[in-house]
Nucleic acid binder design. Structure first.
Lengths: 202, 202
DNA sequence: GCGGATTGTTACCGATCGGTAACAGTAGTG
DNA sequence: CACTACTGTTACCGATCGGTAACAATCCGC
């Protein structure tokens, strides 16, 4: 994130990186993911970050803005992960999908996992005007777009349907992780993805 | 305030039931589903039900207990729906699954849908000791059990994998509904389920 | 009519929510 | 050194949270 130069379009402190802000943000990301957005107050964030609420509001305009920034961070983090998983199989879309699902299962089955932070935010942030909702919608739309593009790249029959089905499998895994601690249905995501791709002639 | 005499004609419940409790519960169910559990306070529930907080606490021990009862209601409602969808195809497990996914897509694509109330609760209720968590876990476990049983009944190869995959598809649809208003990937759930069952020789 | 049970009403409790004002201390830089 | 930016501290705001006490008004069966 911003360590040297601030790319903030509207006015903000152009230079002089306060370490406090980063500590607060880091703490907030962890607490939001672990306990949920609504369950974590700004006081708890500031306290856990070793500072206080006043310093919080010197770095962030509001809690909603912090939430939006948390979601943007999660979004960037996700695509970094995606690109890294996909990188070893350039030009082999089917292998890319298999690697994605393998990595997805591994990630989702880890003990600290609480599914997808952006999907969880979709449940918690109901108000349409919340600045985080747009981030979530854009994120999930991009997932859909990429899965469909992969399906098309592997020359599957009815690539849109295959792409959507792959997305449903992945999202279902995130949701299932919240109720099944280990050995949940997530483990079947990879073979199911393979089966679907086979059936679509990819 | 509300009318002195209840013009509610349908009142076939066991006689002597306090009408206030039912009104509160009904209101709570709608608000919890529409806006989320944490987003709705007991004051808002009581007010929307045309009564006040004191009457609320005369009918319910706590908000957490009401939430648990809301989830138990959702659970019962879900299995009623499931059994009704499945009923016309007794002895034909594959037709049952297809009917389930067809009905699932219809239900999930409706304008008022906000996915699965129990799955949403899994996101919101993080504390292990919350009385609602057990309801959610039992519900999702039963879904898994039934899908696996259906897969086995249709003599599919690797029925556990097929059952889990079907569950992932359905759960993914619930989650996707929260970000995709209409025309989302949910529409591909039925063909994907068919493809999977075909591939498993069912 | 009466009595008991169910309601409505008001006020209150301590805690926490998101958010702010005012001021004192510290850090770094010229 | 002084000047400035950043941070810590304390107290406070109005609102809302889940939950309760006390009392008045109503309902209903007898």
């Amino acid at each position: 994130m911003n360590t040297v130069k601030s790319e903030d379009p509207n006015l903000a402190e152009p230079a002089g990186r306060p370490r406090v802000r980063d500590r607060i943000f880091e703490t907030a990301c962890e607490l939001f993911y672990r306990h949920g957005i609504r369950a974590v107050g700004v006081d708890a964030i500031a306290c856990e970050a070793g500072t206080n609420k006043m310093s919080f509001y010197r770095s962030f305009a509001s809690k909603d803005e912090l939430v939006a920034e948390y979601l943007r961070y999660k979004d960037r983090h996700f695509w970094t992960w995606w690109d890294e998983v996909v990188a070893p199989h350039v030009g082999q879309p089917r292998a890319q999908v298999e690697a994605l699902f393998q990595a997805h299962v591994n990630k989702t089955c880890s003990k600290e996992s609480r599914g997808c932070g952006l999907a969880n935010a979709a449940v918690e942030l109901v108000e349409d005007e919340h600045p985080g909702r747009a981030v979530v919608i854009a994120h999930k739309s991009e997932i859909r777009r990429r899965f469909r593009a992969l399906a098309k790249a592997m020359q599957a029959r009815e690539p849109e349907q295959l792409g959507d089905a792959l997305m449903l499998l992945m999202e279902g895994g995130y949701l299932a992780r919240l109720t099944f601690a280990k050995g949940g249905p997530v483990s079947s995501a990879l073979p199911a993805a393979r089966t679907l791709m086979d059936a679509h002639g990819a």
